[in-house]
């Protein structure tokens, strides 16, 4: 990564925000560990449910300082579904932090960040075409993450038209964020009302698996968020991602093995491991298997590319 030409061509590795509810000590231990891995960018903050307060805003900002001091490029992520005034209040505080870049996951956040400071367009923002991307670039967005349901073909189209200076990030590894609701499905599973959820999602560090009545796992319940049960793994597509000029590859944290995933991506980017083999090794440890359908323009849950 010392050669400037390689730096330009090699995508950076980003660690997405933790999407689950983990206890404070677990979160802090996780980030202590991540600070020693080769991820370049770390997205911090609660994006799913404002009732999850293992860390409050001050704690997140303090953690951001620590990780910055350790050489990480920190971005503060914001909530996808903003309903209550208290949530908007936290959002304003994050958008006005004056120190760290912010990832907008709602157009309310885009409004608060527009024209003030460069910002990132997260998975919660629907950017399906280059015109929308150009409009948001005009307001100060300098990085966007492609909606996970879009394919390599659409990415190729958008990349040829993307505005100058705009970085493209791809959700490259993890359980896909598929949907958000007012309803908490974890509370529903435990027959509890959302207002008295008893923080049951603390018991599910990687969510609850949802299967069909014939035992086919396909979704994971994570509070108000629904994820894929399968893990999206684009490591085998590394060469194409680089050829398409992707700037950042996002790894979405899991409770177990995230450091192994980071190491596999980093090794492949440095050319010391072969992507297909490294991906196969990662996939072997996945309880519900891997998928790459979205990238291939197919139903998301499918695994299209042959696994090594």
């Amino acid at each position: 990564m010392k050669d400037a030409t390689i730096t330009q061509r090699t995508p950076k590795l980003a660690l997405g925000p933790v999407l689950y509810y983990w206890p404070r000590e677990t979160l802090l231990a996780f980030y202590r560990q991540m600070s020693t891995t080769p991820v370049d960018i770390i997205y911090l903050g609660e994006t799913v449910c404002s009732k999850r307060r293992s860390l409050n805003t001050d704690d997140w900002l303090e953690l951001a300082e620590q990780l910055t001091a350790e050489g990480k490029d920190v971005v503060l992520s914001t909530m996808v579904l903003l309903e209550a005034e208290s949530e908007l209040k936290t959002l304003r505080r994050l958008c006005d932090n004056g120190r760290f870049t912010v990832e907008a996951n709602d157009m309310g956040a885009v409004r608060l960040l527009s024209g003030k400071t460069p910002f990132v367009l997260g998975t919660g923002i629907n950017i399906y075409n280059d015109r929308t991307l150009r409009f948001l670039a005009g307001l100060g967005a300098h990085r966007w993450i492609m909606p996970v349901e879009l394919s390599r073909t659409t990415l190729a189209c958008i990349q040829t038209q993307r505005p100058a200076g705009m970085e493209t990030e791809i959700f490259a590894y993890g359980r896909l964020p598929l949907a958000y609701s007012a309803r908490c499905f974890t509370a529903r599973h435990h027959n509890l009302p959302k207002d008295n959820c008893q923080y049951r999602c603390l018991n599910d560090p990687e969510g609850l698996t949802l299967s069909t009545r014939e035992g086919q796992a396909f979704l994971a319940i994570n509070g108000i968020q629904t994820q894929s049960a399968q893990t999206y793994n684009l490591l085998p597509e590394l060469a194409e991602l680089q050829a398409l000029g992707v700037d950042v590859l996002r790894i979405s944290p899991q409770a177990e093995g995230t450091e192994t995933v980071v190491a596999a991506f980093a090794d492949c980017l440095q050319g010391v491991r072969e992507p297909a083999a490294a991906a196969a090794a990662l996939n072997a440890a996945l309880p519900q298997g891997a998928c790459d359908g979205y990238w291939q323009g197919q139903p998301g849950l499918q695994q299209v590319a042959a696994l090594g």
Binding site: P147, E149, L176, L178, A179, Y180, L219, G300
Partner: peptide
């Protein structure tokens, strides 16, 4: 719709086609 409209990809996850796309 149980999910926030415009923020639900369940249909494309299973069938390849979603409301957004």
């Amino acid at each position: 719709c149980i999910m926030v409209e415009g923020r639900c990809l369940l249909s494309s996850y299973v069938t390849g086609e979603s409301p957004n796309m």
